[in-house]
Write a protein that binds this DNA or RNA. Structure first.
Lengths: 119, 119
DNA sequence: TCCTCATTTCAATGATTATTGAATTGTAGG
DNA sequence: CCTACAATTCAATAATCATTGAAATGAGGA
C-alpha cells in the first residue's frame, strides 16, 4: 500500500458515519449488508450513506456487489489488513518492541503464537 | 482508546504534511527533532508546521518537550500502538485469521514468536 | 536590560468536505 | 409497457480544514 492510498483510507476512517459503517460491515462479515439496511443501522439518509459508501469503496475498505434490486456492501479485509501493515511499518520501523503491546491488546495473534494464560 | 480519539488520530494521519511528520519522528526515535528542523525536513513554513504539530499532539501521536530555546517533538509510540490496536480490534473481531497477513508484512513480531524461515 | 532566535498565535483567505432534498438510473414483477 | 422499489447522482448550502504572513511570546546570551 502506498502512502497516498493510506492517507485516503485514514481520511475515510476519520468520519463518524463512515467509521460506524466499517465497524458494522466487519461485524456483518462476508455476507455484507444492503445499502438501505446500512442506512437504517447508522441512522442516516440513503443519499448521505451512498456518498459515504462511495468514499469507503474508493479507499479500498469496502466492496459492493449487486444482488437483485439491492447493492450489498461488505468489508474489504485485505484493504484493512494492508492499512494495519502500513501503520505498523511506520510505527515499528527500527522499534519493533514498541508496537508489540498492540498485538497483545487485540486478540489477533496468529494461531501459531504461544497460548497465553487467560482468566 | 475510544472511538472519538481514534477518529482524531485517523484525521491527523490523513494529511500529507502531518503523515510525513509522523514518519519522520518515528525514524528519529526518542531523541525527537526541533520544530524548526521538522519544518525544514518537510519543506513547509514554520507557522504551518506549528499548526500541524499541535494537531498531531492533540491526536496523541507526538509529544513536545522544551530544550533550551527549541521545542523538541518526538513520536508517541504508545499513541501509535493504541491506534493499531483499535484498528485490529475492528478488523479482527471475529475474523482473527484475516488480519494475520498484516503481522507477517510488517516486521513487527514479538521476539517470543517462533523464528520463521526467511530467505 | 536589550537583542536575537525559535516557535507559536492570530486573523483572513482559499480549498475541501458533509449534508440535504429533488431528480435520475436501474431492476424486477404484474 | 407500466408501476414500484432500491440506490445513486446532482446542485446548492453549510461547515470544517489548510495556508499565509504579520504580530506576539518566551528563552538565552551580550
Amino acid at each position: 500500500m502506498d502512502e497516498r492510498q493510506a492517507r485516503t483510507a485514514f481520511a475515510a476512517l476519520s468520519q463518524e458515519t463512515r467509521l460506524r459503517i466499517v465497524r458494522l460491515l466487519v461485524q456483518a462479515g462476508p455476507d455484507g449488508m444492503a445499502a438501505g439496511a446500512i442506512a437504517e443501522a447508522v441512522a442516516a439518509s440513503p443519499s448521505n450513506v451512498s456518498f459515504h459508501l462511495k468514499d469507503l469503496e474508493h479507499a479500498g475498505l469496502i466492496a459492493p456487489r449487486r444482488e437483485a434490486r439491492s447493492i450489498i456492501y461488505s468489508a474489504d479485509f485485505t484493504g484493512l489488513s494492508d492499512l494495519i501493515a502500513f501503520l505498523m511499518k511506520d510505527c515499528c520501523a527500527g522499534h519493533p518492541e514498541i508496537c508489540v503491546p498492540a498485538l497483545a491488546d487485540a486478540q489477533c495473534r496468529p494461531s501459531t503464537a504461544k497460548k497465553k494464560a487467560r482468566a
